[in-house]
Amino acid sequence: MNYDKILEELNVIFISVLDNDDIKINGNTTAADYEEWDSLNNILLVVAIEKHFKVKITSADFQSWKNVGEMAKTIETRLNQ
């Protein structure tokens, strides 16, 4: 799965978890862009991402993400391992 497809599927996850149909993420999106993206939803996002993509996210991954693009790149790397 390539980066753009991962972003597309992440968008569906974000809409569901943050309960906001207007969400349109891109590589530069951060938690500051959506008020619904709080600490609890951050946990639910990671839960949904691991379940959807069937990848393992590490603490190092989690702490290094500065935006959705970095999140998507981690997922892309895991999927291609």
């Binding site: 951050n42 990671v46 839960v47 691991e50 379940k51 393992k56 991954d61 989690f62």
Partner: peptide, 8 residues
């Protein structure tokens, strides 16, 4: 499931 990174 157990999502270790977020302890869930």
């Amino acid at each position: 499931d157990y999502i270790e990174v977020v302890k869930s």
